[in-house]
Amino acid sequence: NPVPEGCSQLEIGHTFLHIERITQNVVKSHIETSQFSTEELRRLAWTFYNPEETHSYISRSAETMWQKCAVQITNAIQYIVEFAKRISGFMDLCQNDQIILLKAGCMDVLLIRMCRAYNPINNTLFFDGKFAGAQLFKALGCDDLVSAIFELAKSLSRIQMTEEEMALFSAAVLLSPDRPWLTDVQKVQKLQKKVYVALQRCLQNKGASEEKLAKMVSKLPLMRSICNLHIDKLEFFRLVHPETAYSFPPLYREVFSS
């Protein structure tokens, strides 16, 4: 690319190095904090719940199944908090903003990470040690939420993001400056911009089309609607089964409380 006016080769070199460092940091953080490695998931790709096991999940009470899912989500969130902590610049934000970004964005990151654990051949997701179809979650009483999650997993897996792209996309979504109540919007904006530049650079290097980033970004509204639907379902569950909801892991209750 031609050198922009007023910009020396040295400055461009610095910028390039800076972007390279961001990419390395975010990708390393993503890999270190992935609950399951790609190799592990590949090895388990053909471990499914058999019909008897599926039936036993289906016949559980809504309360038992909600509890089970809350625990699984909580485990995943702990890894996402660690991912955030390892992203350069995240810990330089004030703790109020760190919490706001995590509360608003950890479900988005979880949904992006989920496509690593999705098998498009038989439309199953890795859950509690094996791959499960949507019907396994019947007892939750949230068919619309479950089918929206499977739909998203399918469409995200079609994009075929590399681990690098997934890492940078997760970080960019987590660092969304439009989350309400942030104290230092500009600081978050700056961080997100850098990550997006790194993502663009990464896509260019791999010879990916311009469309790929657009496809990734186009999934954000569906992700946001899934997050909202999850909160609605949780609110309803809390009304019907307040005691069970109170026994959910404290981190889950903290992250998804209004």
């Binding site: 890894y79 908090v81 760190q98 903290e254 409380s257």
Partner: peptide, 20 residues
């Protein structure tokens, strides 16, 4: 702070579930 006690702790902890 009380409302987000666990998140505060996780953010301040140097050991994480990843390291354990």
């Amino acid at each position: 702070k009380e409302k987000h006690k666990i998140l505060h702790q996780l953010l301040q902890n140097s050991t994480s579930p990843v390291d354990l």
